[in-house]
Design a protein around this nucleic acid. Structure first.
Lengths: 198, 198
DNA sequence: CTAATTTCTATGCAATTGTAGAGAAATGTC
DNA sequence: GACATTTCTCTACAATTGCATAGAAATTAG
């Protein structure tokens, strides 16, 4: 009935994600993007809605992956150890949240790419909200279990951890090493451990 | 002997700093840059070496200002309170280290602007080294005064604080509010205070 | 006033940007 | 094999990019 596509849409999104992750949005031209993803110019428009469309697809892919995989252990019955494990995963080989290129969502927000920022802002906000909720749930579980002080401001602490995660990603990207932010991770883990044992 | 310049070089660098700070490097075209700085096309080349040259001048200006002003209290006889004051300045109106646009050095590093990265990397590294040294000196002073535990790994802690500062700036830029990173600042200040009183 | 020197304005240029259109190519159905 | 449908390649286009050249303008020295 029709000519088959010469590419795998999923694979393309995956490759696009890594490409934007590494180079950013503006610095990556469509021709280089086509080369890196194996996409042709026509498909970039017809299937993904051009450079901007593919960028949004990449951002959603990254976000979904990170939320469904990296944050998963924290979601239901997580507590302090799960937070610590997540923080450690930010600087551990093999984790998708650990990269010499930092975090796509952080990079996107800082580059402030002049894309139609409506969908873009929404995707970014959704990501950080998910992370904050995970931290908050874990802290609440820890509090319910009597493992941390009842005087702890859980919401504020969760927000603080989110910013710290951004710091780890930023440090990783600035140094081009996926474990450059390890000292901040250590610092946070020590504080979490101290909260628990006191 | 010659026609006088129609602009104030210092003022131009100042305005360029704010412009790049806000818009980033790539997203800011030379024509808009000229408009925002009051510069003309000829002067941009002859006096500053084009867009890239002005960018480097802006980065140096920002760095020098921050190092000589914001970090100054930490430099000589600083201790824990001086670190706390610096961290608070990151989210305080009127401080040059507090901005809804984050930090020029962080933004630069993350955008990974494809400028001749030799000078650029050097400027950025110098900035973070200066900050790390300030933190380290303050912690050393605190340790020498017996105000914190001798088991504290001062160098590691200082490095962790630097990453945390990046996180505060990132959060500020992502939300477009100069105090968005306040929860991380609170978290760090609490930890520093706890270290001191224990 | 003239000349010399520097700065400014105007125009343009080669390169790149993202996008678009037209015909060729490749498939399944008849 | 012919057709319809979808995908792909090729070319091109308008816009923007940063940069550069040339002549005009403004200032001081003589």
């Amino acid at each position: 009935m029709a000519r088959p596509k010469g590419y795998d849409p999923e694979e393309v999104v995956k490759r696009a994600t890594y490409a934007f992750w590494q180079h950013g949005y503006q610095a990556l031209g469509v021709r280089e993007l086509e080369r890196l993803t194996g996409l042709n110019q026509f498909a970039l428009r017809s299937e993904f809605g051009g450079k901007e469309g593919l960028y949004l697809a990449a951002l959603r892919f990254y976000s979904e992956q990170a939320i469904s995989i990296a944050m998963e252990p924290m979601r239901d019955s997580g507590s302090i150890p799960e937070i610590i494990a997540f923080l450690r995963s930010l600087i551990t080989d093999g984790s998708m949240t650990s990269s010499p290129y930092g975090c796509l969502v952080v990079n996107t927000g800082i580059e402030n790419a002049r894309v139609g920022s409506a969908d873009l802002d929404k995707a970014a906000r959704h990501y950080w909200d998910a992370l904050e909720n995970c931290f908050e749930a874990c802290l609440q579980n820890a509090l319910d279990a009597g493992r941390i002080s009842t005087s702890t401001d859980i919401k504020a602490f969760a927000k603080g951890l989110v910013s710290a995660v951004m710091g780890v990603h930023a440090q990783n990207r600035l140094e081009g090493k996926n474990n450059a932010g390890r000292h901040l991770v250590d610092l946070l883990c020590e504080q979490l451990t101290a909260m628990e044992t006191s």
